[in-house]
Amino acid sequence: MNIKKNVKAIYIIWLRGIKLSSRYKVGFISHLGQPLLWLLLMGTGLRGSVSMGSMGLTESTGIDYMAFMLPGIIGMSLLFSSMMGGMRILWDKKFGFLKEMMVAPISRVSIVLGNNFSIATISILQGIIIILLVPLIGVDLNLFYIPIALLFILMIGLTFTSVGIVISTQMEDFGSFQGIQTFLTLPLFLLSSAFFPVTKLPYPIQIIAYFNPLFYGVDGLRGALIGVSTLPMWLDLLAVTAFCAGLILLSAYLFNRSEGI
């Protein structure tokens, strides 16, 4: 009974989030456009200039740089939009709607999860659209593994929405939120193997990369989409799932504890 109630509450909060997002089509399209530009401009530019040998891949795999970059760009798109999405909690706090949810007869956890799922849904939708556009830029995908790729996309989306929510619970204003977000996203992105394998980094920095959930996400996504990965895919999935679960719990815990209304 209690679980049923919570699931319903999560659904209601999720539905509200989807409604809001559907009203921000401009935001949706601009978030979609950014990764596509990266792919088209950076990808085509580097396609001819980077030898795959230097990426630790033999030319015989038939994978060019554009294909290598694709999972990284999807990861980047998920990273940015999910983390920004986590700002909704702060937004609701500032504009008062959070109070309406806090006095409603629903659990705090369902508020966090409902928001998380709706933001992640939109991020995942963007990831899927990018995958759908991929044949247009001449990259062959491993169709058989698409469901696994979607699983990785789901994990990355939920993970970084949770990070955004964690920051939201700790910040009081939008400026600080964006400061922290900018401070975090760049290293997360650069240490994710989006542009180059982390094995090309000096050993101490490589160690840091192994604490980066996006690394496992992108590596796994690469494995699923183009069949190349640094770690075995199951290990990537295990790691990213663990990060995801941990961060969802942390966001729920911090939200439950926070009283800054």
Partner: peptide, 11 residues
């Protein structure tokens, strides 16, 4: 005011 200074809003 904070909306104006906070820049973009993504939902």
């Amino acid at each position: 005011a904070s909306r104006m200074t906070s820049g973009v809003r993504i939902r």
